[in-house]
Amino acid sequence: MLDVRGIKKVYEGKGRTVEAVRDLTFTVDQGEMVCIVGPSGSGKTTLLKIMSGLLDPTAGEVLIEGKKVDGPPPGMAVVFQEYGRSLFPWMTVRENVELPLKQKKLPNARRKELVDESLSAVGLAEAHTAYPWQLSGGMQQRVAIARAVAYEPQVLLMDEPFAAVDAQTRADLEDLIRDIWHRFQVTTLFVTHDIDEAVYLGQRVLILSSSPTVVRQDLAIDLPDERDQLNTRSSPRFAELRAQVYSQIHRPKADAAEPVGAGATAVDGGASGYGAAPDLP
């Protein structure tokens, strides 16, 4: 489905080059929910921008269903961290959600259906005529999520979408994401720096090293599919997984030379998915 191959990104500055991402390779299967977790400044946003076609990699390529990404691909929606800056403040909530659908040239009736469905899915059935800035931060991010869902993407990318909301809202939104993922069966990539959030949300967690970034570990989250804030987070398995991610992220720099460490358990996805991808020139 989503195939990231040998992505490298080097920023050329004045007399100084910064290697943000060294070598990233992984795949995400159809309908999977994968979290990417890494320390601050680990090139997560760079990776996300490359996957969404907003940024060209220095080397490597991203494939969606075998098609190379060069520029934003049609079946992809992105939810950004800065909800206040990703909604159009001159449009109402409804117009914001509808805009990409108009761009897709969907007929009127279908647009209305999708907008209504997605706004009620995020619990904002009543807020159609409000402007984004009349809503709280959490509600604004719900609108951005509704817009992404209404777009009916093949892949949904989220870039630390809950980093700027308060803890309670955050927990609600995490459950909303699980709910939406179940409901719409959309392949979801969720980037975060929050270990608990990654373990709670994902079927798999990709652990990134600090910059220059490589994949430290590809960890399968074997928690039951039905998750809730109280029981899941207090389960012993959750604690174990959390500890594992934590130790990977905080592993001393010296080990970083060997990206996927020998101690890594539950390595999965990467290699097998790679082989399954169609051959390309």
Partner: peptide, 14 residues
């Protein structure tokens, strides 16, 4: 024009 808004428009191919 805000860079995030601009990126948003780009990802929705506007």
């Amino acid at each position: 024009v805000d860079s995030v808004l601009s990126d948003t428009a780009r990802t929705y191919r506007i």
